[in-house]
Simulated assay, not measured.
Amino acid sequence: MADQLTAATIRADVAELLHRRPDESFDTEDLFDSGLDSVRLMTLLERWRDAGAEVSFVELAERPTVQQWVKLLVGRDE
């Protein structure tokens, strides 16, 4: 788990790459259906690894929603 990551930072990072507002309700949307691609996913992965996350590309790709990523990276729903 990464101490520096929060649900808000995860949501903001995803919103930035998908050209969305972080306050929009998109936590349960399939991010691949919303325009996320493998290059953007790698960008997020590297950003979150730099913040201390220990997560793989496959773990994120298999759970393509903000809600699931928060559980995976932060360890709780927010």
Rank of each mutant, 00 (worst) to 15 (best):
R40D: 01
V58P: 04
M42G: 02
E62Q: 12
R76D: 11
E24I: 01
D23W: 10
D77Y: 06
A7G: 13
E24V: 04
A8F: 06
E29D: 14
M42A: 10
H19A: 05
S56M: 09
E46I: 07
M1Y: 09
L72P: 05
M1K: 07
L31I: 07
E78I: 00
E16Y: 07
D27N: 15
L17W: 03
R63C: 04
Q67W: 02
L60F: 02
V70E: 15
L41A: 03
A61P: 10
K71T: 14
D30P: 12
F32V: 03
T43Y: 02
L5V: 11
L44H: 12
A7P: 14
A12R: 11
L45P: 02
R76Q: 13
L17Y: 03
F26S: 02
T43A: 11
V58S: 10
D37H: 06
E62W: 07
R63L: 09
A7E: 10
P22V: 12
E54M: 14
T6A: 12
D37I: 01
A8W: 04
S34V: 00
L72M: 13
F32I: 03
R40W: 00
L36N: 08
H19F: 02
H19P: 07
D37K: 02
R47T: 10
R63E: 04
Q4C: 08
G52E: 05
L60C: 09
F32Q: 00
R21Y: 05
Q4L: 10
D30K: 05
Q68W: 08
S56Y: 04
H19V: 03
F32C: 05
H19Q: 11
H19T: 09
V58N: 01
W48Y: 09
D27R: 12
E54P: 00
V14C: 07
W48A: 07
T6M: 12
L18R: 04
G75I: 11
R47W: 07
E29C: 00
L41Y: 05
S56V: 05
F26N: 01
G35R: 06
S25I: 07
E54S: 14
A8E: 15
A61V: 10
A51V: 04
R20S: 03
F57P: 04
S38Y: 01
